[in-house]
């Protein structure tokens, strides 16, 4: 849309005409109905955050297994890449058979998408542990489990968190596709905007989704700074 029209929409006076963006937002923020903007925001958060953490929980053991048994990596990565390549709509159609028109139907494919990014991150992260560091951990007398938890995983954190940032942002943006089956979180605002040609819902949807993505990304950057002070030490030199 032309920016002139956008400005006009935002600034048009309170009158008999269509409501302005702010009026519309205020009126629909908390209506008590399931499709109030507030409720859609909460839905959106649930459907994007659950896959991010579920993907981490699934990708960690699969990534570890892929490092332990190298032959496992290519098939595992292959399967998840194929799933990633499938268009969402047929995947939803398939899942509706099992979980109906529920949030689960959105969460499951997003989790798989997350895994497609995170499994290679975990594998690369563990691969970023220098060999002499691993060797010296063995020589100091770490048991394999302790070595993994206290040496290898902490060193893998920056690479894994970089993957998490990609997953978080793409998850938050992809949830809106769920609108196709009536579970799109803020994505529902887009269908509403298309159905009765009216701009504000789409604008509110876009802005809120972008804000969510920025906040999630910011939190992950913060987590990285807190978890890995040694990475900054490395950059400083």
């Amino acid at each position: 849309m032309a920016s002139g029209a956008l400005v006009a929409t935002l600034l048009s006076p309170v009158s008999d005409g269509p409501p302005t963006l702010w009026e519309w937002l205020g009126r629909n923020w908390d209506t008590g109905r399931v499709d109030s903007i507030k409720n859609l925001l909460v839905d959106h958060l649930i459907m994007s955050l659950v896959p991010i953490f579920a993907a981490l929980v699934v990708a960690l053991p699969l990534g570890l297994a892929s490092v332990r048994w190298r032959w496992l990596y290519q098939p595992t990565a292959g399967v998840f890449n194929v799933i990633y390549a499938l268009p969402s709509l047929p995947v939803f159609m398939l899942l509706i058979q099992f979980s109906g028109l529920s949030k689960t139907t959105v969460i499951v494919p997003l989790t798989f998408y997350g895994c497609a990014v995170l499994i290679p991150s975990v594998v690369d992260g563990l691969g970023s542990v220098p060999d002499h560091v691993r060797q010296s951990a063995v020589a100091m007398g770490f048991t394999p489990l302790r070595r993994l938890l206290q040496v290898e995983l902490p060193i893998a954190v920056p690479v894994v968190l970089a993957g998490m940032r990609v997953v978080a942002v793409s998850s938050i943006s992809l949830v809106s596709v769920g609108a196709l089956i009536g579970q799109g979180g803020l994505g529902m605002l887009f269908t509403r905007a298309y159905q009765n040609p009216f701009v504000p819902p789409a604008l509110v949807g876009i802005v809120l989704i972008v804000l969510l993505a920025l906040v999630a990304d910011g939190l992950l950057v913060l987590a990285q700074r807190l978890l890995t002070p040694w990475v900054r030490a490395r950059r400083a030199t």
Binding site: P130, H132, V133, Q135, S136, V151, P154, I155, W230
Partner: peptide
């Protein structure tokens, strides 16, 4: 060990 093998995160 050669290259010391220190733990970079500690």
């Amino acid at each position: 060990i050669q290259q010391a093998g220190l733990f970079p995160h500690r």
